[in-house]
Computed example of a mutant assay.
Amino acid sequence: MKKKDILEAYRWRQATKEFDADRKIKEDDMEFILETGRLSPSSFGFEPWQFVVVRREDLLQKIKDHAWGAQGQALTASHFVLILARTPKAMRYDADYIRNIVTSVQGRTEEEYAQRVKRVQEFQENDYRLLDDERVFQEWIKRQTYIPLGNMMTAAAQIEIDSCPIEGFNQEEIDELLISEGVMERGEWSLSVMVAFGYRSRDFAPKTRRDFNEVVKYIG
């Protein structure tokens, strides 16, 4: 039954462009959704994200003004979440944040930290060549944030809460707005993606997707 219920939630979920502004998500349901994001996996377990739940209506209006993709969602969603990504400055193999994650959060010894950071250095310098291009490095970090994004939207669908991921914004403009509003510190964070949660204001047509056998390929 669990598999059937999970698949049904995936079929039910669709990107909700406008929500019923009169319906609000219960706080324990929203905390459940955010907790699935917090528990999500990330490369090396470095958790390069922060989830900012925006409640201020004046800030939601400014976000709407600067994000063409949030026109129907920013002011109608029950909860509007900004998913911030750390910058390359914080995610370099030798950064203080990495040391803190490995030693304080993950509980590794100094010897284990030295081994881990050596492997991370090799990954960043040689495997993905992230240190060659700051933009490539930033995009790699932002890709990590889409893991909790997907998990939160799926968790929401399983308790019949709608969602919509939002990428429709000018990166420089929205970052400047969030810095000026005190949401994040310059050089430490960048907005990766936004996601709105709430309840749909209308029914959707059935979801369409390519056939399973067209999407999935088996080798051997």
Score class of each variant (00 low, 15 high):
Trp68Pro: 14
Glu214Ala: 12
Glu27Met: 09
Glu110Trp: 02
Leu75Thr: 02
Ile174Asn: 08
Glu57Ala: 07
Leu177Val: 11
Phe212Ile: 12
Ser104Pro: 00
Ile166Gly: 00
Ile101Asp: 01
Phe204Leu: 14
Val136Ile: 12
Tyr10Gly: 03
Phe80Asp: 12
Arg209Ala: 15
Arg11Val: 03
Met1Tyr: 01
Arg210Lys: 13
Asp211Val: 10
Glu31Trp: 06
Ala77Tyr: 07
Phe80Leu: 15
Thr16Cys: 15
Gly220Val: 07
Arg23His: 03
Gln138Gly: 03
Trp12Met: 12
Tyr218Val: 15
Arg119Pro: 00
Pro165Cys: 05
Leu60Ser: 01
Glu122Phe: 10
Leu39Met: 14
Gln158Asp: 07
Val216Pro: 02
Arg186Asn: 12
Lys64Asp: 14
Lys4Asp: 12
Phe204His: 10
Gly45Ala: 11
Ala157Phe: 09
Gln138Pro: 06
Arg186Val: 07
Asp5Gly: 04
Ile166Arg: 03
Tyr199Asn: 09
Ala155Gly: 09
Thr208Phe: 10
Val54Asp: 04
Glu110Asp: 13
Asp58Lys: 07
Phe44Trp: 15
Lys217His: 14
Gly72Gln: 08
Glu125Tyr: 01
Glu111Trp: 00
Pro48Asn: 04
Tyr128Pro: 03
Ala9Leu: 10
Asp96Cys: 00
Ser180His: 08
Gln115His: 04
